[in-house]
Nucleic acid binder design. Sequence first.
DNA 1: ACAATCTTGTTAAATGATTGTCAATTCTTT
DNA 2: AAAGAATTGACAATCATTTAACAAGATTGT
Lengths: 214, 214
Amino acid sequence: MWRLGIVDDKVISQAVVARLPRYYRYLGELKDSGIERISSQDLSTLMKVTASQIRQDFNNFGGFGQQGYGYNVEYLYNEIAKILGLDKSYNLIIVGAGNLGQALANYVNFERRGFIVKGIFDKNPVLYGKELRGIAVQPVEQIERFVRENDIDIAVLTIPKEGAVKAAELLVRCDIKAIWNFAHVDLNVPEGIVVENVHLSDSLMKLSYGIANQ
Amino acid sequence: MWRLGIVDDKVISQAVVARLPRYYRYLGELKDSGIERISSQDLSTLMKVTASQIRQDFNNFGGFGQQGYGYNVEYLYNEIAKILGLDKSYNLIIVGAGNLGQALANYVNFERRGFIVKGIFDKNPVLYGKELRGIAVQPVEQIERFVRENDIDIAVLTIPKEGAVKAAELLVRCDIKAIWNFAHVDLNVPEGIVVENVHLSDSLMKLSYGIANQ
DNA sequence: ACAATCTTGTTAAATGATTGTCAATTCTTT
DNA sequence: AAAGAATTGACAATCATTTAACAAGATTGT
């Protein structure tokens, strides 16, 4: 059962996807320092992973290299960008204008990669109208209308866990494509909606495990 | 070759350690709602992982359960806390008082888990003396003295990547135990010093991969 | 143009992680 | 007190990921 012209229905493991951003970062740095080509062996030394893994990883998406030559840095960089969906632009809203929400709203580098903050929402009236990089905080009641009218792809959830599940349900009803979840709770969304969790306290616990177990 | 009385030189896989905080979270919620015991089967349903994995994971650290009964929630909760090193308290400093550094400094829940912010540092003189939850921002030149005098365990690195490698080297010289690294760069520290990375842009790229690949 | 070198993509082997199974044990009910 | 139900911990089997090996093809220097 083939879909014509579509070859990429191979499932890529999460482990591979999780490594792509790091490849992308190193290739970007190589590109910026004027390096035109690199072999899996040299990249392996630089990144401290095996050359075999690098070749295996890239080959999940097709043959980007050339025998006897290696990989063209800029070409590979651009290909990985496409794989990661970084060749497109995304509209996002921030739900929760607390410290973390404000910090993310003020972080310029996301916009440079095509993640455009279109709206910021909070339930605290004190914050209404407060501007972060030219965008005024709005009441959460406006989310549904705003998402529908402004073609929002991603919601960044930076509210306490108590409200997060309800907020996620609302966002799902608004046909959001993805949720970047900073709330310390597991969201339960329907198939097809992407959830990427950033559980800072989990990360801190892993660190403390590291200290406690030498 | 046995070290007397020390049984725990088995190496625990990163996959297992990474799951512990989530167990800890669910057990905490069960405890708070007054549940005294739970079987791996019920926990499995709740957390959407296999019961086998739960039992296997816990058994890495010893037999916490009882046949025919299951696991005592509070006991297991406390045992996992010990494994994660959450029964101890840690002193930390925040290096970089930008948006993210301030957001983390203001986040109260870390203190509740025993991670105590003792100092905040920045290289920008405009911020010197600015107080975050009663702690004044100091010049980065003070880090070395402060770490040594105040028994600091953890440094939270929330500065741009350009300065992060140098900062990490300084912190290593000060005998810091662990670095919680938010800078978008790989730190190279000697064996025995714990580094836990939070690469937000990597996380955002994984999300965008998810959108791009349905 | 040729030989020596390099380097990929691919397949196979090795390692690691997850899931399934079941005997042994404890709990619960009658 | 005995029988039946429940549930762990351990082991085995399966599945997934990583590493190694190498043939095929490209490059480089002479």
